[in-house]
Amino acid sequence: MKLKITHTTTYAFNSEVFLEPHYLRFRPRQTAYVDINEFSISIVPEPSGHKIIQDEENNVVDFCWFDGVTSNLSITVESILETKPFNPFDFILEPQSYNQIPFEYDESKKKLLFPYLDGLPIAQELIDYGTAIIEKAEFNTIHFLTQLTNQLHKDFTVEYREDGAPFLPEHTFEIKRGSCRDLSWMLINLLRQQGIAARFVSGYYYFDMIVPAFELHAWVDVFLPGIGWLGLDPSHGILTGNTHFPIATSSHYENTMPVSGGIRGSASSKLITELQIEKI
């Protein structure tokens, strides 16, 4: 399957501002099951400097700086992706000790995975929620991860919220609803409490709809030896497959924001986004 993704992000300011340097995260990642055939980015106003860099967690980022003042910032990206057949369950865990929870990463992995194991304190009720599913899964790692992801989908209502930081995990758990990033941030911190390395993922998710209405999506990756990073989508209750297209991953959601940068000026701004994904 071949897809065309067109994503436009516009900040409209009510007076002119000077744009500080900006980090833009819009480039889909090449994976074993998705080829990036084409990518283009258009930025208005045109930057005076533009460099493609890798950040601390190996995300590919467009770093831009500007001259002069402007009343808007608009970024339009177009990507052509081609998917390959993919079975998310085609794996084994090695060493086999990782098949049972609790497990512990070896010392070398602990050092590399430390940012993805460092979780927030969470409410006992949320811990108990996870523990009950571990017991139901008979302490089997993959059964636990799949059942937990599916149970979150059943127990929580997914809401669209265009901007704002994710809620604290205990708040999302208490109100039983939230955006994809709220559910993902809660799941990450629950998994870290169980000693499982987890990271935040920002990207696109495609599925057939009668009336297409796509948005930037968030999900979770966990690290398991023998598999590497395995994707869990609590909003849909599934393991990620070849219709999930990651853009940025990080131990903290702040480092996956599509646009990061400041302004000089006293203007307020309005965010306008448009995302289209179509088969070609």
Rank of each mutant, 00 (worst) to 15 (best):
G178C: 05
D35G: 09
I43V: 15
G237M: 06
R192Q: 15
L232H: 01
S266P: 00
F144C: 05
N37W: 08
P88Q: 06
L19M: 09
S15Y: 07
F91K: 04
S184D: 01
I127Y: 07
P246V: 12
S235E: 00
N72T: 11
N99L: 08
I134Q: 06
D233Y: 06
V77Y: 02
F26G: 03
S40A: 12
Q54F: 14
E78D: 08
Y253R: 07
G261Q: 02
E94P: 04
I5S: 01
R29L: 13
L190P: 00
L224I: 11
F167G: 09
I122S: 07
G261R: 03
S42M: 11
L112S: 11
P85A: 10
S15V: 08
V34E: 00
N72Q: 14
N140T: 06
S79E: 03
P234I: 07
R181E: 00
F114Y: 13
P21S: 10
E57R: 11
L271A: 07
E170T: 13
E278T: 12
N59E: 02
V201K: 04
V220M: 04
D118L: 13
F86Q: 05
A218V: 06
E125Q: 12
I41Y: 04
I263E: 02
G231E: 00
F66T: 01
E78F: 07
F167C: 12
G265E: 00
I175W: 06
V61E: 00
H217N: 05
E20M: 13
G203I: 10
E107I: 13
H171D: 14
V158R: 13
E278D: 09
L275S: 06
H244D: 03
F26S: 05
D90E: 14
N14T: 09
K109F: 13
S108R: 11
V61G: 00
R25G: 04
S79L: 07
V158Q: 10
Q276D: 12
T31P: 01
T31I: 09
P258D: 02
R29I: 10
T273R: 07
L232Y: 02
M209C: 14
K279R: 12
I36T: 13
Y204N: 02
P234W: 01
I127W: 03
A165D: 15
F18L: 11
T273V: 15
L19P: 01
T131I: 14
W229N: 03
I43C: 09
P88T: 07
V201S: 06
V69R: 14
M1E: 04
T31C: 05
E278Y: 09
V211R: 15
E16Y: 13
R192G: 03
R29A: 13
P85G: 07
T172V: 12
Y253F: 15
I92E: 12
Q151P: 03
V158E: 07
S250M: 07
S40L: 08
S79N: 03
F207I: 10
D90A: 14
F173G: 03
Y11W: 05
E159V: 15
A137Q: 00
G164K: 12
H217G: 04
Q124N: 13
R161W: 11
G237P: 00
I188V: 15
N14H: 11
F139A: 12
F103Y: 12
P88E: 02
T83L: 11
E46C: 10
A197F: 09
V60T: 15
I75L: 05
K84E: 05
P246W: 04
P21W: 05
Y204C: 10
D182K: 08
T149E: 01
A12E: 08
P28N: 05
S251Q: 09
E159K: 15
T157M: 12
G119Q: 01
D208F: 14
P166K: 08
